[in-house]
Amino acid sequence: MNRRWIGLLAALVAVAGFAPAATAATAPRAACPDPGPGLLRCLTTYTSAPALADGPIGWGADDLASAYRLPASPGPETVVGISIAYDAPNLEADLAVYRAQYGLPPCTTVNGCFRKVNQQGLAAPLPEADFGWALESTLDVSMVSAACPSCRLVVVEGNTPGFADLAETEDTAVRLGASVVSNSYGAREGGAPLAFASHYRHPGVTVVASSGDAGFTAASYPAVLATTVSVGGTTLARDPSSARGWAESAWQYGGSGCSAYIAKPSWQKDTHCGKRTVADIASAAEDIAIHYTDAGGWLPVNGTSASAPYIAGLIGRSGQAGATQPSSLYAKAASFVDITTGNNDPSGAGRKCGNDYLCVAGQGYDAPTGLGVPNGLTGF
């Protein structure tokens, strides 16, 4: 039985109500189980057993466009790369359903908008399928599409989630024309992953990565790299009483951390972490609607694996792909909407970091939400 069907069986068991009660009710379930040492993990999660329906459940492309005040113009045809492991057999079809639902123009192999290749950049053979990583791929292309309907997509599938294979997908995406590359996976920083840091540094390319889904903890690779735009997560809610029409707080599971390895970049000025602090900016990471055939259709998902590709798409839409780097975001800090409530310490409401900005949102920079969330495209 291959990875795709093992994962599907697990999802169906959860749908039927056999997931442990505490897990199903109170904490997100990982789409990708912990792979162990030497491998990266996709960061999509469920907050409960998937709730399947005929239409979207959760925040869709139009909601996100409203929350982040996106302009009417779709932007240029920036090529956005998706670095991912394993194959997602229904990826193009699921993307077509998502884009049609929200009135986005078709993005297909035929019209040149969509391309899926293996880690060498070839159309075949593709890696084996995997349920969790395919769910991740589907979320990635949906979020880039929501942020940048005009962007073209190149999805590069690694043979495994090993450091070397995913590093090669990064290089291949750039070789195939991507000026923004999104990475919705992570591993605890350390000597083994950091040996591949150079693959996430390309002149004229913006590299974006998820900050993690384990709350305040050890910094996540590749988000911790100083060359990477590290994206945290928020919880979004409608707020008719506010001028914005939306309220936002730090997502309780969004990753943040203080590096033990990466030197403090000159452009990062926070004072309670002597090295690189994660994250840089944030966007919605909870209750995101996607269409995923292998789980039965529409379902809500969570994760900074939603916020990272969304930010990657916004950077593509801004026309500043490549020019946008972590340092440039800090130079435009006032262009983001500051998130001042919430924390990413699910078990202690901020006690894990002593109620410090490293795990509690507040005025100005904080690690869970960085500089804040997009206010149109002005920050890019």
Rank of each mutant, 00 (worst) to 15 (best):
R4H: 09
A11I: 07
L12S: 11
V15L: 13
V15M: 08
A16R: 09
G17Y: 02
G17I: 11
A19D: 12
T23M: 15
P28K: 12
C32F: 05
P37G: 14
L40K: 00
T44G: 10
Y46T: 02
A53H: 11
G55C: 11
P56A: 14
G58T: 07
G58K: 08
W59I: 01
D62L: 14
D63V: 04
D63T: 09
A65C: 00
A67M: 06
R69S: 11
P71Q: 14
S83H: 01
I84Y: 06
P89W: 05
P89A: 04
D94V: 01
A100L: 02
T109G: 13
G121N: 01
G132H: 06
S137P: 03
L139I: 02
L139D: 02
P149R: 08
V154T: 10
N159W: 11
T160E: 08
T160F: 02
D165I: 03
L166K: 02
T172Y: 03
R175K: 02
A178V: 12
A178S: 13
A178M: 10
S184V: 06
A187I: 15
R188Q: 11
G190D: 13
F196N: 11
A197H: 03
R201F: 03
P203A: 15
G204E: 07
V205W: 04
T206G: 10
A209W: 01
S210G: 14
S210M: 11
G215S: 06
A218Q: 05
A219R: 03
S220K: 02
V231Q: 00
G232H: 04
T235K: 03
L236H: 07
A237I: 00
A243Q: 04
R244V: 15
A247T: 01
A247W: 00
E248Q: 07
S249A: 10
W251N: 07
G255I: 04
G257I: 07
G257Y: 02
G257H: 00
C258S: 10
Y261C: 02
A263T: 12
P265Y: 06
D270R: 10
T271A: 14
K275Y: 13
T277C: 06
V278C: 10
I281T: 10
A282T: 13
E286A: 05
I290N: 10
A295C: 03
L299N: 12
V301I: 15
A306S: 15
Y310V: 10
A312R: 12
G313M: 13
G316L: 11
S318C: 03
Q320D: 09
T324W: 05
Q325V: 15
Y330M: 15
T341Q: 08
G348C: 09
G348A: 10
G350Q: 09
G364M: 01
D366Y: 13
P368Q: 05
V373T: 07
G379L: 06
